[in-house]
Design a protein around this nucleic acid. Sequence first.
RNA 1: CGGGGCGUAGUGUAACGGCUAACAUGCUCGGUUUGGGACCGAGUGACUCCGGGUUCGAAUCCCGGCGCCCCGACCA
Length: 423
Amino acid sequence: MKQSQLFTKTRKEAPKDEVSKNAQLLIKAGFVDKEMAGVYSFLPLGLLVLKKIENIIREEMNRAGGQEVLMTVLQDKATWEKTGRWSDDVVDNWFKTKLKSGAELGLGFTHEEVIAKIMKNFVSSYKDLPFYAYQIQTKFRNEQRAKSGLMRCREFLMKDLYSFSKNKEEHEEFYEKMKDVYMKVFDRLGMGEKTYLTISSGGSFSKYSYEFQTLSEAGEDEVYIVDEEKKIAINKDDFNDEILADFSLNLKESELKKVKSIEVGDIYSLGHRFSEAFNLTYKNKEGKEEFVYMGSYGMSPTRLMGAVVELNSDENGIIWPENIAPFTVHLIVLNSKNETANENIIKTAEKIYKDFQEKEIDVFYDDREKSSFGEKLKDADLIGIPIRILITEKTLKEDSVEVKKRNESESKMVKVADVGSVV
RNA sequence: CGGGGCGUAGUGUAACGGCUAACAUGCUCGGUUUGGGACCGAGUGACUCCGGGUUCGAAUCCCGGCGCCCCGACCA
């Protein structure tokens, strides 16, 4: 894409109503726009990143056997009353609204009830199990306090996968597998090194569950690191003698390192809670009815985008990991006042731009005529595309372009003819 | 939901209860520049969050709302 055609612009000043690094940088660079607290629009650059994150998640969910669906946002009160979760005393972050008729509806904050109800239509025999369904969809949670930019929103994208198994053993096999699948996603997002499988209390569904916590000062959570090598931690809130005994851990709180972290995923064993509420059963080999054993697995692409920015930036801007950068290459021309030289600069840039496009390399071409080069270079640093290729009168005198990686300080000259080799 | 801070051109800031609400940046036009948001000049842009009150006079003081940020609580 040509930068001259992008409707967003960068800003010099960070917005005064944002303190978090992720929101400041993403707004300054034009990736997102804030509609209100905890509610953000994704602009062209931001959407490119979000789609890449989604696709990584989608690929890994598909590989794990997930089947993608898209469930509804508007949800029937009756469905939720089956589990008692319609009540505001049980769930305090509902957004609720009404039909013209006066009937009450909720805006989905999760989908266990909805999917359990759907599956009644399709599950009847042990031969139907196990299977896994997931979606990537907008969730609404009426947070009492939205904060930290993209990391705690009232409207956000969530990947939620639900597993349907015959019994606990079959469930646990998949549950274990999902730990690796999740870590694979975090690896591909460039945050695997800092992400810990974290033991936590399981809420109302089971005694324990696992969270994935990425170490960062920007996080809301705190974890005790149990094993740095294996990347295991315990959520600070859940650290007690019981949990240590149950996991056969011999640890002293005073000897553990406590680190702030961002919760980037969670996986739950749901057991029969929802299958009982919806009478979701199957016939086993003996012809006896049994309840389906469920699990749920959450991960938010929008929060991940915020987390990636928290982890990857410097004083000049964002440093996108290659896998999810909006573009792979930022091709920048610095125009010359010498007409012949300028023609050559533009001709060379256009050719490289076209070649990259033909090779399906994502290239962002800064073809803007600016009165100062500094502005173009500052923009490039702020936007944070991994590889910067500069074409100027000077570089072309050597028949070359200058190549610099965003995460390195040194640049190198590369012959125009060899420019394809830098990607 | 408790506590604290704040609300002024697109953005960031300023303005004692008193001149036409100022400065920077952005944007437009003209010119000079050309490897880190360069320079000069001329323009453009504000119902000072909303509603009420006090006052001769309110961006400024008071009351009530709404919104934003931070700390805490909360976070199936």
